[in-house]
Every structure is written in C-alpha cells, then in structure tokens.
Amino acid sequence: MGKTGTWRVFRPVIDKEKCIKCWFCWVYCPDAAIARKEYPEVDYDYCKGCGICANECPVNAIEMRREEK
C-alpha cells in the first residue's frame, strides 16, 4: 500500500548528459520521488508522473514517456 507509482501514465526519464544538476526537479517534486544522488534519480515506486519535473527542467533533460504494460 502507499506505492503511488501505480497511478503513473507517463514516466519521467532523465538524460544524464543534458542534466546540469540545478536540482529544480528535486525541489519541485510533490512526492519526494527524486533523490539527490550524483544525478537526480527517480523513485518509480512513488512517482505519480505529474510531469512537473519535465516542465520545469531548464535544459529539457527530462522526457515523459508513456508507460508500457
């Protein structure tokens, strides 16, 4: 229970080559599903796929991909 990742329709995928480590995604994530490791890491157990991270990323390093069954 509580694993809100099952709600997700679109999955954020981070392109590490484009990432500038500004950590906006980490601050803006409503679900604390992005961890501050060497690069941002998404916890897909909790990510609801709202897309705020992708929308706010200043270098467009996050892509929202449709979840496949």
């Binding site: 694993k3 601050v27 994530c29 409503p30 679900d31 961890a35 909790y46 897309g51």
Partner: peptide
C-alpha cells in the same frame, strides 16, 4: 538532502502544490 518529515506515499493528486510547500 534526505531529511523528509513529510514522506512519499501520500495520496495527493498528481501535480498538487501542497506537498511541495509542506515538504
């Protein structure tokens, strides 16, 4: 970095601003 006093797993709608504020 890892101090979360308001943890993931809450059931706010996707894209809700309240958990961003609170967290």
């Amino acid at each position: 970095e890892d101090e979360n006093y308001f943890t993931p797993g809450h059931t706010a709608c996707a894209g809700c601003a309240a958990p961003i504020i609170v967290r």
